[in-house]
Amino acid sequence: MSVRVLNRIEEAVIALLLVATTLLVFVDVVLRFGFGTGWLWSQELTLHLSAWFVLFGASYGVKVGAHIGVDALVRVLPRRARRAASAVAVAAALVYCGLFLAGSWIYLGKMFRIGIEMEDLPVPLWVAHGILLVGFALLALRLLQLLWRVLRGEAEGFRFADEAEESLHLARGEAEEARR
């Protein structure tokens, strides 16, 4: 499979999780207000979908440079020092991933051995929480890739496109529309 296809799939999964969560809560309101009924399992399902959404999406955030951060200090450093700092930052992020992978492995293993299920859905807990492993593994992969590029001088470190820039990006088209 080509990288393009993989990228499309990744984005589709993220969009699907967000839309599914939204619609599930929306349907819940409609059912209760319109029909005086509801599903007991929907709350647990929506909460888990949103957890999947975030953990699966964290690595995508590294790819598109969307993580929130402060790089004011690093920016004033001379070039070589900046590259060193960036490499340390990415390496530290890898340590973060590694620790969480280890923790998740132990946690999920314990839940697997005890064999309990989710509260309202007949799904084993270790499956429902398994996204911890998947998410952090994907994140570690992306970070390794980034570290490689920083070391080779192809990347400067995490690009921070904070919430500010996102909002801006969305509104920009709108402003052009208004100017016309």
């Binding site: 509801g38 709350q43 647990e44």
Partner: peptide
């Protein structure tokens, strides 16, 4: 059992 609707809420 009494034809009421149980709902789970935080």
């Amino acid at each position: 059992a009494v034809r009421a609707t149980p709902l789970k809420k935080p």
